[in-house]
Design a protein around this nucleic acid. Structure first.
Length: 489
RNA sequence: GGGGCAUUCGUCUAGCGGCCUAGGACACCGCCCUCUCAAGGCGGAGAUCGCGGGUUCGAAUCCCGCAUGCCCUACCA
């Protein structure tokens, strides 16, 4: 009888979802979905300092935005709740009591000063810095004395010297010698459980089958294994993921770029792109495919194929995936997503412009690298006061005066072209260039600048078609005025 | 100081004893396409597989040392 697959994501409520956490969440999500198991969200807020339910919102938003939906959690409930560690103190306390009762743990009445002194001496002697268990040996009288002096005891696990070993799905067998794990604190003076204790208790009670987390927890795992053993519980399978690191191969942090998922959202990244990028930080399909949707990953992902070496977060690669995914979106979807970025970016859009927005966006498809660049890319479509700066034209082959004459002809052409569409405009403009004995490009660039105000745009005639006769005509007129001023200046 | 783990192009990775004179992708460079900018196509440069020993007919792949890096070493998580 195999246990159902139950995995969890256990972030601290920091206010937003870290990209490293997002990667861990993704791997867990994939595990769960592939096996038809459960993806549990547990908020680890045992540190009262940082605990604030309001700060969970960013975690939820980030996960939801990425499409990493959870089956059980503080907000949706579930059969093994509560899902906030701060609400599970009784369960933790009960387990601490059990360890105390079995003499697997003890109250430690040493003071912080005593422990610091011990560490200091060990350092001076060049010995490993470990808690020697001095608190184990106080007599009843000594304890009474310390109590009277106001010492509040912490609860320490009694770690007997013995080698500890566990099998990790990604790393393999990991072991540590008999003297490596000392008596560690499992509960504070006030009785509240510390991280390792809380994790073990919660993972057990939540029936977690696989603990999939960052490699930075390997050392903790040795302690947790001891706890499982003492409590008489079966530990979950462990899988420790390589870390997401910066260019200097250290833990990814602020100065390495945006570190929160929310920032990627506002910076115009698609969740599909972030997922696709993140999955390759520690995993690869084994063949040469590179583009994967979340749904495809559910089919392909195998924990067994996860790498062991840390992966550098390369923003350029993320950008590449973003472009790929933008181009994969169908126009309706893209328009819907880009709309809010466009207005946020300062474009004044009215609801009746949706059709126009969409037509314009269609032309910008392959030029849109990030959704938050929508406004800067498309503002000329919406600026009805646009005054083209004709100084942008390079008057090498043709003078400003000649250019003005040509634009007059173009204006006339714009007035009468029928229909006012891409092929008609192109045919007539090419004919005009030929009549003038100009190279087509020499004519198109001034027109482009006149009509869009910029040198880089989508193909000119498609752009003009979308802009419409009216706008093109007005802008051409303003360009002509500008050219005249330029001539007199 | 101690321990654990890791080490293939600048980066993400393929590779699990012979198919590797190491493949793909990003970035970079060049060419093509072309009305500009993109996108796309083609090509180039880029890794003596961290170093040194072994094992083997044969090693990026197995073993042992060394080096380097990262993580942990709290009454943080």
């Amino acid at each position: 009888m195999t246990q159902p697959i139950r995995v969890r994501m256990a972030p601290s409520p920091t206010g937003d979802l870290h990209v490293g956490s997002a990667r861990t969440a993704l791997f867990n999500y994939l595990m769960a979905r592939r096996a038809g198991g459960a993806f549990v969200l547990r908020i680890e807020d045992t540190d009262a300092q940082r605990s604030d339910p309001a700060r969970e919102a960013g975690i939820y938003d980030g996960l939801r935005w990425l499409g990493l939906n959870w089956d059980e959690g503080p907000d949706v409930g579930g059969p093994y709740g509560p899902y906030r560690q701060s609400e599970r103190k009784d369960v933790h306390r009960e387990a601490v009591q059990q360890l105390l009762a079995n003499d697997d743990a003890y109250y430690d009445y040493t003071t912080a000063e005593e422990r610091a002194a011990e560490r200091e001496q060990q350092r001076a002697e060049g010995r490993p810095q470990r808690y020697s268990g001095i608190g184990r040996h106080f007599s009843a009288a000594e304890v009474a004395e310390r109590k009277a002096a106001g010492v509040v005891p912490a609860v320490r696990f009694r770690a007997e010297p013995k080698p500890i070993q566990f099998d990790d799905i990604v790393i393999g067998s990991i072991r540590v010698g008999p003297d490596e794990v000392d008596d560690f604190v499992i509960a504070r003076g006030d009785g509240s459980a510390l991280y390792n204790m809380a994790v073990v208790v919660d993972d057990h009670h939540m029936r977690i089958s696989h603990a999939v987390r960052g490699k930075d927890h390997v050392s903790n795992t040795f302690r947790q294994v001891l706890l499982y053993e003492a409590l008489g519980w079966t530990p979950p399978a462990f899988a420790h993921l390589p870390l997401v690191v910066n260019r200097r191969r250290q833990k990814f942090s602020k100065r390495d770029g945006a570190q929160w998922v929310g920032e990627y959202r506002t910076n115009g990244y698609l969740p599909e792109a972030l997922v696709n990028f993140l999955i390759f930080l520690g995993w690869a399909p084994g063949d040469e495919r590179e583009i994967f949707s979340l749904a495809e990953l559910v089919q392909e992902f195998r924990l067994e194929r996860v790498n062991r070496a840390d992966a550098v977060f390369d923003p350029q690669r993320l950008d590449h995936f973003n472009g790929v995914w933008i181009r994969r979106l169908d126009l309706g979807d893209l328009a819907e997503r880009a709309w809010s970025y466009a207005t946020a970016g300062g474009l004044k859009l009215s609801p009746d412009q949706r059709g126009y927005f969409r037509s314009a966006l269609e032309l910008e498809y392959e030029r849109l690298s990030h959704l938050n660049r929508t406004a800067e890319l498309m503002d000329f479509f919406f600026d009805d006061e646009l005054v083209p700066d004709m100084r942008q034209v390079r008057y090498r082959r043709h003078s400003a005066a000649e250019t003005a004459q040509a634009l007059e002809l173009v204006a006339a052409l714009v007035d009468e072209a029928e229909p006012f569409d891409d092929p008609t405009l192109e045919a007539r403009m090419r004919a005009l260039a030929s009549d003038l004995d100009w190279k087509a490009g020499d004519l198109f660039m001034p027109v482009r600048i006149a009509v869009t105000g910029r040198r880089a745009t989508p193909p000119l005639f498609a752009t003009m078609e979308v802009l419409g006769r009216q706008r093109c005509r007005e802008r051409l007129q303003r360009a002509l005025t500008g050219l005249a001023e330029l001539a007199t200046a």
